[in-house]
Amino acid sequence: MRIRPATEADWPAIWPFWREIVEAGETYAYPLGATSEQARGWWFDGSHVVVLVGDEDGRILGTAKMGPNRPGRGSHVGTASFMVDPSARGRGVGRTLGAHAVEWHREQGFAGIQFNAVVETNTSAVRLWQDLGFVVVGTVPGAFDSASHGRVGLHVMYLDLS
């Protein structure tokens, strides 16, 4: 597997799993029923976007976007979002993208990385981020309306890079 910068030409390969993940209603608060153009605008929003490509077939297995969590005086702390094609889960795609995001933020001189909204019932993601050194600094109760669990908490997670 290799990571490379994403281009707009990658969107047709990202869109099907982006839509599947969002429509499942378990991990992202993007509006349901988004069009491809709306979703592309949200994902390619000026952030640094990468894709993980499977070396065996050149297929895009996952994508991540990263950059400052806030503008201006908050721009020294980064953030990132990740999506892994459900058919590629269990192959280390999320871990590879996560490790890349941590290294990218270090190289860019960020002081830390803050994830604003990790759904507490997304236990595989919570465990992955904790394995990579992130800690839960707080949980907003009932802030996410999970399709299968109802209202659940959103973790704010942080990794100090100093």
Rank of each mutant, 00 (worst) to 15 (best):
P16I: 13
P16R: 12
F17Q: 08
W18Q: 06
R19Q: 15
R19G: 05
E20A: 15
E20K: 15
V22M: 08
E26S: 09
E26Q: 14
T27V: 14
T27W: 01
T27K: 02
Y28C: 09
Y30N: 12
L32V: 02
L32A: 14
A34C: 05
T35N: 07
S36C: 11
S36R: 13
S36F: 00
S36M: 03
S36V: 04
E37T: 14
A39G: 14
R40D: 00
R40S: 07
G41W: 12
F44W: 11
F44P: 03
D45G: 06
G46K: 12
G46T: 10
S47N: 12
S47L: 04
H48G: 03
H48Q: 11
H48E: 14
V49M: 03
V50C: 10
V51W: 06
V51Q: 08
V51F: 04
V51Y: 05
V51G: 02
L52H: 12
L52E: 14
G54Q: 03
G54H: 04
D55T: 03
E56L: 08
E56C: 04
E56M: 01
E56N: 10
D57E: 11
R59N: 02
R59M: 09
R59S: 13
I60L: 01
I60E: 04
L61P: 07
G62P: 03
G62S: 05
T63Y: 02
T63L: 00
T63A: 15
A64D: 09
A64S: 15
G67H: 04
G67P: 06
P68A: 15
P68E: 11
N69E: 06
N69F: 12
N69C: 13
R70T: 09
P71N: 06
P71K: 11
P71A: 13
G72Y: 12
R73T: 07
R73A: 14
R73E: 07
G74S: 00
G74L: 00
H76R: 13
V77S: 01
V77H: 03
G78Y: 01
G78I: 08
S81I: 01
F82G: 00
M83K: 04
V84K: 02
V84D: 03
D85W: 03
P86L: 12
P86G: 11
S87R: 15
S87L: 14
A88F: 09
A88K: 08
R89I: 10
R89K: 13
R89C: 08
R91M: 11
R91P: 05
G92S: 04
G92N: 03
V93R: 07
G94L: 10
R95M: 02
